[in-house]
Amino acid sequence: MTALLEIRSVAVRFGGVMALSGVDLDVQKDSITGLIGPNGAGKTTLFNVICGIRQPTTGVVLLDNKEINGVPTQKRSAMGIGRTFQRLELFTTLSVFDNVLVAAELARVSNPHAVAREQIELLGLTDRTDTIAGELPTGSARLLEVARALAGRPRLLLLDEPASGLDDVETQQLGVLLQQLKSLGITVLLVEHDMSLIMKVCDQIHVLDLGNVIASGTPDQIQHNPSVIDAYLGAVR
């Protein structure tokens, strides 16, 4: 196994607050890697660093062993990084189809319309193709975020709480989809509070607390790690 993404001693300071204080973690190629931790642990900040929305105060981000620190956000998608947003960032006045189409066109794929249709079908949004994105219920909106990110043809897909707002059946379907993506050669970094989903699909899990990685390992190791139980999982056994 080789690492697709490496985070090396990344620290981010907001004024007097350390949002991330020297994080080290790897995301292996063709894996589903979970990133869990309590609210405010720094998960979204780490996503922003990976996407280039925020520059780390110190430390480096490596993609395919190449440092990408200075690369602007819009160039990172061409390098294969795609993401969804915890607070939805849909193109709310465009239709579902156009949301995905814009992504496909920006990625300069050869047949953007076909790619868009394909992703919408993959996420089960075909019935809503012409719905205005701003009028979608939260669950479908989250799925649309995923479809849009996929249309950019990412190698590394960052998902920020994709299951929040989904019901049990939809969450299960999302789990199946993630496995499918993995088999298609898309590496997934998944932030999620739904522990059953995380434990079911992830190959590797990193636990973040107060800006530090407090544990890394397989789902089984994480579930039995005392410091993780202390900081995050609590009474869930």
Binding site: L90, F91, A103, L106, R148
Partner: peptide, 15 residues
């Protein structure tokens, strides 16, 4: 239109 709705999402998609 996408830029009007969410410049952030646009940039992450390569705009």
């Amino acid at each position: 239109v996408a830029m009007k709705d969410s410049p952030l999402a646009g940039a992450t998609l390569g705009m």
